[in-house]
Simulated scan of single mutants.
Amino acid sequence: MTTQPSRDLETFPNPTPERDYTVRFVIPEFTCLCPKTGQPDFATFYIDYIPGTTCVELKSLKLYMWSFRDEGAFHEAVTNRITDDLVTAIVPRFLRVTGRFNVRGGIYTDVTTEHRAEGWQPAAPVQLPPRE
């Protein structure tokens, strides 16, 4: 196999930078290692962001997420690292990263982080009439 895990997040220009829109990724096959036991941890990651001037390229995101497979990481630390790396790479207007980790010791763990660009305010939500 020629594809290898990588921490390089590639980007491309936002095709519609004048509009706020949400990009959502669902990554159901995330794995890392428990830093205490070395056993595998499994999670689904949800990444929602409103792009600034750039977007993250999907294959590089896949290889980036894969790069944690052999690394020991606490759930809180890995979720915050992913957030920091994405903010550095794409400088989004808004970013939310949620890691939903499978059960470990009878406990499920969800970790959610958020980033908002300085001065960015979301548009007011549009209230649609109820369906008749």
Rank of each mutant, 00 (worst) to 15 (best):
T109L: 15
P40H: 04
T31K: 14
F12I: 01
M65I: 06
A77N: 12
Y21C: 03
N80M: 08
V87Y: 12
Q4V: 12
T98E: 12
M1G: 11
W66V: 03
N80V: 03
A73V: 08
C32Q: 02
T3E: 12
K36H: 07
A124V: 11
E118F: 00
D85A: 13
H75E: 08
C55S: 01
A123S: 10
T22R: 12
Q121Y: 06
F94K: 01
M1I: 09
F68W: 10
L9H: 03
R19Q: 13
L86M: 15
R116W: 07
I90L: 08
N102M: 14
H75Q: 11
T79Y: 06
W66E: 13
D84R: 12
P51E: 00
P35R: 02
D84Y: 03
S6H: 05
R7W: 14
I47K: 03
L61G: 04
T88Q: 09
I82P: 13
W66F: 11
E71K: 15
L63N: 14
R7A: 10
T83V: 12
P129F: 03
G119M: 05
E10P: 01
T3R: 12
D8L: 05
T11M: 09
D110M: 09
N102T: 13
H115P: 03
E71M: 15
I27D: 08
F12Y: 15
D20W: 02
R93L: 05
P15A: 00
N80T: 08
P130M: 06
F68H: 04
P92F: 03
L58A: 11
E10H: 07
G99T: 09
E132V: 08
P28H: 02
V103R: 06
I50L: 05
P17T: 00
D84A: 15
P92A: 00
T31R: 13
F74R: 01
I82Q: 07
T37I: 14
E114G: 07
R81N: 15
R131W: 06
L9Q: 02
